[in-house]
């Protein structure tokens, strides 16, 4: 775990963070580095909506094997994100709520269904996603 040293007084502050993943994995580093950001946010026990939209849905499809290209497979990290979400749900001492969401239109446009994903996701149509967006305090887009 990286250091979480703080400088500002954020005691008792809770916000809704959205991590909007719109980029495919491997072609660029964005998908991999945003995962590090999602995981560090868990240390602050904040609400998080981790959304996969547009080519971002390709980040969580099954069967990635970048080893033949010499690249690191970071697919397993999505399982860690899923575990954090489940831990938050099960542990009564943790107030944060995490959601893992796929936008329906992006998924269907790519001929995918929830069976294709390595983690359990909630599928929201663009209108529902829009309503969720309106509830956010901070959006980290990628």
């Amino acid at each position: 775990m990286e250091d979480t040293e703080t400088m500002f007084d954020t005691e008792g502050v809770t916000k809704n963070f959205m991590f909007l993943n719109r980029k495919a994995p491997y072609g660029t580093i964005y998908a991999q580095e945003v995962l590090e950001l999602v995981l560090i946010s868990a240390a602050f026990e904040q609400n998080a909506a981790i959304v996969f939209m547009d080519d971002g849905v390709y980040q969580i499809v099954k069967g990635h094997d970048p080893s033949v290209s010499g690249m690191k497979n970071f697919s397993p990290t999505y399982k860690v994100v899923e575990m954090e979400k489940e831990d938050a749900e099960e542990d009564e001492d943790i107030d944060m709520v995490w959601k893992i969401i796929v936008e329906k239109e992006s998924m269907e446009a790519r001929g995918l269904s929830t069976d294709d994903f390595i983690i359990n996701v909630e599928v929201l149509g663009s209108q529902e996603l829009s309503a969720l967006m309106a509830e956010q305090d901070v959006v980290f887009g990628g």
Binding site: M53, D54, E105, S130, A131, M133
Partner: peptide
Amino acid sequence: RNSLASCLRTAP
């Protein structure tokens, strides 16, 4: 890119 289309589809 499709940023405009995605924004228009989901912007509240």
